[in-house]
């Protein structure tokens, strides 16, 4: 449990209800990992690269929405995969878009999974329970 709790979840989503839903699901699953929230890609980059603030400690899992202002999820992914420090980050795309073009574009950026927020709480719940097992792998990795 101690190992697991060290993995930080970075939620990148501009929709506060979506963030609430994720947090609520994590709480329901009794995951006590630290949770950071960024409202768009740029903010998430600032958090990860420590631009003006202290960067998020590794290990972390990024839960990324695609459709956001300023810097979209796909743009964020492109920058992350170019950045040497961040290139190996574990990223799950958690979005409302089930457009095949979005899914294909996301997988081209080597994401760990693509979760469609179809039926809000249920899908998020199953998705995050899947994440739960993934956090263990990440923590072993460290």
């Amino acid at each position: 449990m101690t190992d697991k709790s060290r993995v930080t979840f970075l939620i990148v989503d501009d929709d506060s209800v979506a963030v609430m839903a994720i947090k609520r699901t994590l709480r329901k699953l009794r995951l006590t990992n630290p949770v950071e929230v960024a409202r768009d890609g740029q903010e998430a980059l600032d958090l990860l690269q420590g631009n003006g603030i202290s960067p998020i400690k590794k290990p972390y899992i990024i839960l990324l929405d695609l459709n956001m202002p300023r810097m979209s999820g796909l743009e964020f992914l492109a920058v992350v995969r170019e950045d040497k420090e961040l290139a190996n980050s574990v990223v799950f795309v958690l979005t409302t878009s089930d457009a095949p073009s979005d899914i294909a574009a996301a997988y081209r950026h080597k994401i760990a999974g693509y979760i469609v927020k179809e039926n809000a709480s249920e899908t998020i719940s199953t998705a995050i329970s899947m994440l739960d097992s993934y956090t263990e792998i990440v923590s072993f990795d460290k």
Binding site: D15, V17, A18, T96, K117
Partner: peptide, 8 residues
């Protein structure tokens, strides 16, 4: 998106 938010 907003619909889902309201539903949630």
């Amino acid at each position: 998106a907003p619909l889902r938010a309201v539903k949630s």
